[in-house]
Design a protein around this nucleic acid. Structure first.
Ligand code: MN
Ligand code: MN
Ligand code: ZN
Ligand code: ZN
Lengths: 130, 130
DNA sequence: AAATTAATGCAACAATGTTGCGATTGATAA
DNA sequence: TTATCAATCGCAACATTGTTGCATTAATTT
């Protein structure tokens, strides 16, 4: 089996995601790293972190893709079943760890993953009544 | 206010979406139209159809964006609050008009739109036990 | 039929993501 | 510590997807 290595770039990417309150896009991460490593390297690191279940990917209605650190403690296998909120004004995407949709599926489907993203106005932008 | 026109291309795009059992990507629509119109025109038509609430856009975890016709009858304003299923094997995306998530949001958010996409194996692919 | 302007085609561009390959480096064993 | 070797990286090249400006075409109204 393939073993995974802790490289400077991987550590840096993870640190950026850890410090961020909102989910970040590839480009945002790249900017924050300030040319510590190549664009392509970041894509590959993100892929690895997802496979290792350390971060998760969030895909937004407008086509944006963002990444956030997982906050579930020590669970080996898990589904990212919480909701995400995407603000139409400030374009920030945040994990709503406590919002989990309930739903009833037809029996003949096998669900492996869910993506539940809500969009509208976040508390910040709602207050500044845009 | 801007009035909207019924053009040959628009009619054709809508027809393709009407006939399809699954949601289609821009590229898939373009191929089916067989150079009836330009790529760019299709993007613009899709935008218009979305504004007119005739079709809706579905964004998948893998970054794919697809479009499907709305099947709600005569509702003026509506939210596309049904789920979509994205098959990891055949990559088809279908509307699950009857699956609607229920969830509880914190009060300080204003939700305008939701995107609820489940992925896994569709009935077809599940049967052919891949 | 003429006028108005929404819609189109085309070219050019931007953003995002992927692939191949030779060079580098982290982890492990000698 | 040093040698080893595969995982990771950098770079260049490419693919896909979506956007914009502008001159031209065509749908709708009068
Ligand atoms: Mn999350
Ligand atoms: Mn649908
Ligand atoms: Zn906001
Ligand atoms: Zn399938």
């Amino acid at each position: 089996m393939k073993t995974t290595r802790n490289t400077a770039a991987k550590t840096a990417v993870l640190e950026v995601l850890e410090k961020s309150k909102t989910a970040l896009s590839h480009t945002e991460i790249h900017k924050q790293l300030n040319d510590l490593c190549d664009r392509v390297t970041i894509y590959r690191i993100l892929d690895r972190l997802i496979n290792e279940d350390i971060i998760h990917k969030i895909s937004n209605l407008d086509g944006t893709v963002k990444y956030a650190k997982c906050h579930h403690l020590h669970q080996r296998v898990h589904i990212h079943n919480h909701a995400h909120f995407s603000c139409e004004n400030c374009h920030e995407i945040t994990c709503l760890e406590n919002v989990k949709p309930s739903y009833i599926m037809p029996h003949n489907y096998k669900v492996n993953e869910i993506n539940f993203t809500l969009s509208g106005l976040c508390p910040n932008c709602l207050n500044s009544n845009i």
